[in-house]
Design a protein around this nucleic acid. Structure first.
Lengths: 150, 150
DNA sequence: CGGCATCCTAACAGATACTG
DNA sequence: CAGTATCTGTTAGGATGCCG
């Protein structure tokens, strides 16, 4: 598990890594807390990662995205797109035609996030079965004894 | 950027990768949408990732976590811990002492997620400045013209 | 110390109808 | 086609107080 590769002290390294080696993996300080908070603000909502993922395959129009992302409402699609655009993760290009055509695409910044998102998807792909097993086991233990029976 | 390393078709590969090579990075299908949804269900809330991060440094007691994670309420800490435990990401060990002592720790499953979370934190660490720049620029453009002046 | 129960609110998100 | 606008419901999450 090479979890340090992304932690290069790129420019003048503001980070001070205080290691606590007692645990399974270590390397976590207060700043990470802030970083996680920030990225949750960016893509921690219900749709942002899905939109970014949908754009991984290349540019797409508004209606394409509406189709590609199951069950999203036009309202949420619009809000999510605006937000991602504000954050600089996607670009919006409107063509002055009739009927109007608008294309969305990942910026370099957005594409760089894709790798991290796919990491999450990969984890989920590999472990979701195990997660379900734990959930079921936990729920069985919790449910047992609630209706003590006759 | 080796974004394919996590996508190994480990066992009997249920995945069928339909590539669309028109975009910047490609490799995204419908299943990924589901995977992202699932992992957002797991750790897409406000505190789960922070708790997991806090446990990266090793076992911790309830009150330790309360201290380590700024601004979390006891209610949310309790709820988050229970949830993570149900998902099999953390373990809870209660020692029958007075005063009571309870230790939380990452399971193997939880530790394996840590790598993906740190990926996100690393991205945020590297790019949050740029994100802010985009946001500010966007907001300046949006604000300009709203009060047209005398 | 380590919770759980209760109340309350704000943000998130869905449905629907309308517009340029 | 690509959005806005409004109205409404659901739920995450905060504050507080009590209990084993």
């Amino acid at each position: 598990m090479n979890s340090d590769e992304g932690r290069a002290p790129s420019a003048g390294g503001t980070r001070v890594n205080v290691l606590r080696l007692s645990g399974p993996c270590a390397r976590w300080d207060e700043q990470d807390t802030d970083f996680i908070r920030e990225i949750l603000d960016l893509v921690g909502d219900k749709w942002s990662m899905l939109v970014i993922g949908a754009l991984a395959g290349g540019d797409a129009r508004y209606s394409d995205l509406d189709t590609m992302i199951p069950a999203i409402s036009r309202r949420m699609l619009t809000l999510t797109l605006k937000r991602l655009q504000r954050d600089g993760l996607i670009d919006r290009t409107a063509y002055a035609e009739v009927p109007p055509r608008v294309e969305y695409s990942l910026t370099g910044l957005g594409a760089s996030l894709l790798s991290a998102i796919q990491h999450l998807a990969a984890w989920s792909s590999e472990h979701h079965t195990e997660v379900r097993r734990h959930q079921d086991a936990y729920d069985r233990n919790a449910t047992r004894g609630e209706s003590p029976g006759p």
